[in-house]
Design a protein around this nucleic acid. Structure first.
Lengths: 233, 233
DNA sequence: TCGAAAATGTTCGTCTCGGTTAATTATATA
DNA sequence: TATATAATTAACCGAGACGAACATTTTCGA
């Protein structure tokens, strides 16, 4: 009774009553579950609601994912993996350190903006004290690769003599992440109180430039001050 | 059967089997509910669990607070009000703008560290798209007062000619809040992946100094560069 | 072509959880 | 002291949610 697949044509599918397509079913479930968990949290999400928005049934969710927490864990992993894909396309090793850092900050900022579901899932994980993230080696590896990019930039910046010697890659990563993350995670409360002026596109560009300046400024040796990134058009 | 009050002596209370003390009961419920909501989120919190950790019963929670969401809302307000009390003791108007800003950043950073439950409740609010915050005028006022402090500093800094003319108080507030907030809110995931090195007290001091430098640096006119805050002892 | 295994459909049990009802005890006040 | 009202208790309820049992269909290799 189900038309599961989205990539294949109907003619391939509807010869009989329904066609099996485990991979598509899995992906479909994961897609919907991501939205639901991001929207309602772990305990707030109803398995029946996920099933309803899926092209398949609740039965299949348990068949493939065991239980709610298993599903949640896999959603988390899939989301991290997707984020990683984007990150890897960044070619920072070729750029001189300051430009590489600028590019990384811009990317991180935009990336969080473009993946609000990811941000929300991480928020939820934090509420749960990173309980599920803790069990996933995949996610750990993913984040390691993120910090390695920063470490490489730091090393090169210090070699070139443009970065301060006491720059700490981990703190730098913290610095970048904090603003990129907060900008998405706390938008509801912030804009509820102060209005959403900061989230019109022009102001977001300004904020991004502010972040770039703040981050780059914090690692540069105080003598060599670069021209600031463009503040507004 | 209940010993409700903590401030009064037993002799005042236990003359008979139990003594009524509505205010103490309310406070007790709020105290426990704050912990529970902060720990498990809105839908994750069980009313029965709150009741169990309270000196009173589940029935009383409904008696005083109506329902779960009503309780949650009052928890939120009470927490904001408590936080506000601390904030107002800051005397920034007396200080020259740069020092005032430094002091404000240090305070904000420490303040978030010292009120993790508050931070967690705000996270939860954001997950719920600030649904409950929206209904509370008290909370709105509290945040307004926070931004006014920043606006005053900005105005004076620009008058004195040490701040750049394009400094935006709202962005500055965003800038400060982002790091102070993230430092607490995302500690679980961050330290799960990268270790908790950044949260030993010495490194927290360094981070705080980094934040001060980044924030102050972003508002100063580029010519007049102040001595950086102490990086480590 | 046949049968086993994988995938899906259908239905139901059980337990949790938010919220309520009815009865009991303390307090205030006249 | 009597009585109305506020505070408190214990038991209970119905909805709904997770997950499992059982049945059926599809696929694929021997």
């Amino acid at each position: 009774m189900q038309k599961i697949d989205e990539t294949q044509t109907d003619s391939q599918l509807n010869r009989s009553r329904w066609k099996q397509n485990p991979d598509a079913v899995r992906r479909d479930i994961l897609r919907v579950a991501t939205q639901e968990f991001a929207a309602h949290g772990l305990s707030g999400t109803r398995m029946a609601n996920i099933a309803a928005k899926t092209k398949t049934s609740k039965r299949m969710i348990y068949y493939y994912f065991g239980d709610k927490e298993g599903l949640y864990g896999q959603v988390l992993e899939a989301l991290y993996a997707a984020v990683r894909q984007g990150e890897d396309q960044l070619d920072l090793a070729m750029l001189p350190p300051v430009e590489a850092l600028q590019k990384l900050v811009v990317f991180t900022f935009d990336h969080h903006c473009q993946h609000p579901d990811f941000v929300r899932l991480v928020m939820i994980e934090n509420i749960h004290h990173a309980k599920y993230l803790r069990t996933s080696e995949i996610i750990r590896q993913l984040n390691k690769s993120a910090i390695e990019k920063v470490q490489d930039i730091c090393r090169r910046g210090q070699q070139d003599g443009v970065f301060r010697d006491d720059v700490d890659a981990l703190k730098l990563h913290w610095h970048i992440s904090s603003m990129a993350f907060f900008n998405v995670s706390n938008r509801p409360t912030f804009s509820e109180v102060f209005g959403d002026r900061l989230w019109i596109s022009e102001e977001q560009e300004n904020l991004r430039a502010l972040v770039v300046d703040a981050v780059v400024g914090s690692v540069l040796k105080s003598n060599a001050k670069l021209p600031t990134a463009k503040k507004s058009k």
